[in-house]
Computed example of a mutant assay.
Amino acid sequence: MNKKIIAATAIALALAGCKTSPTGRTQIALYSEQQMDKMGVASFEQMKQEQTIERDVSTNRYVKCIADALIAQLPAQYTQQQWEVVVFKESSANAFALPGGKIGVHTGLLKVAKNQHQLAAVMGHEVGHVIAQHANERVSQNNLLQLGLQAGNAALEMGNVQYRNAIMQGLGLGAQYGIALPFSRTHESEADVIGLDLMAKAGFKPEGAVELWQNMEKAGGERPMEFLSTHPSPQNRIAMLQSKMTQANTLAADAKRQGRNPSCR
């Protein structure tokens, strides 16, 4: 009975939360945008309290210049949002964007992203996660996954199955490597496509995305096999971006003709 209730709840939630991503992929998002915005704002405020903020005026002006150019090309519901851009004094080559209009950039990224086009590629990618509602999808997926594991555990308990703990551990590993990690790679690849489109529409050079990942590959150390990673390998990312370059260059040329020519230094 417990198993049936849990399974029925998971199915009902999944059907209720079906949406379509900007690339046309079916996704499950169980939370409202208002709920996700609230979580994003709270997380960002905590980060600002726990991490050192870079106060250098020229650095902040440079990062915000790129952010403004990208934000101007977002769908209307996001361009009308009040965005906050913060540079954190952190050595890792990273950036992130959160629901609620929050963008964070680590100073370490500025050593790998050598110019405005390369930095726009990273920031466009991170904003892509937001407009594709990947955080919502990820939280929703984890909740449904937990419901599924609970149903499996309940079934094993009802059947008095031997070695139940070992079986449940196996199910947990199977869920992580068979569902959770590949899903995350899907998010990363989708954000790459959205980010490339966004930076091109803003007038940045699309080739900067390929150059950025070439720099990342040179700067990186040992990485786990792609099968065990939440991110596609740099080689696969570069190949995918190169396959989209003709379309991206067309968008960039259109942006130039319309006067969008960022000059962020």
Results as ranks from 00 to 15, higher is better:
G174K: 02
A239L: 03
A202P: 12
P232N: 13
V193H: 05
E190P: 11
E226Y: 14
I179G: 00
H231R: 07
L228M: 15
N236W: 00
E190V: 01
L196R: 01
L173V: 13
H187T: 01
M225S: 15
M225Y: 04
E217C: 03
E188Q: 12
S229D: 15
M225L: 10
I194Q: 09
Q176E: 11
M199E: 09
P224I: 08
P224A: 14
Q176Y: 07
V210C: 05
L241T: 00
L228Y: 15
H231P: 05
P232K: 02
P234F: 08
P182Q: 13
G203N: 07
G178A: 10
T230H: 02
G221Q: 10
H231T: 07
S229H: 08
K201D: 05
S229P: 08
D197G: 03
Q214E: 15
T186M: 05
E222H: 13
M240A: 11
K218I: 11
L173S: 14
V193E: 13
A175I: 08
W213M: 02
K205P: 00
F227H: 11
G203T: 00
L181W: 09
L212Q: 13
E188F: 11
P182M: 12
H187W: 02
E222T: 14
E188Y: 06
M199T: 07
F227K: 12
L173Q: 15
S233Q: 08
E207M: 15
R237Y: 01
E222W: 02
I238P: 09
K205W: 00
Q214W: 01
S184V: 01
M240E: 07
G208D: 01
G220V: 00
N236R: 11
F204E: 05
L173W: 14
G208N: 07
A200V: 04
A191S: 15
W213A: 06
I179F: 02
L241F: 08
L241D: 05
M240K: 11
F227S: 13
S184F: 04
L212I: 14
M199C: 08
P224K: 09
Y177G: 05
A209L: 03
I179W: 04
K205S: 12
T186C: 10
E217R: 15
A191G: 04
L196G: 09
A219Y: 13
L212V: 09
L198T: 13
V210G: 08
A202D: 03
D197P: 03
K201V: 04
L173C: 01
I179L: 14
P206L: 06
L198A: 11
I179A: 11
M240Q: 14
A200H: 09
E188C: 04
L173F: 15
G178Q: 11
D192E: 07
A239C: 05
V210H: 05
S189G: 10
V193N: 01
G174N: 14
S189A: 11
Y177R: 10
G172Q: 15
S233C: 07
I194V: 13
P234I: 10
D197C: 04
N236F: 00
G178Y: 14
E222D: 14
N215K: 13
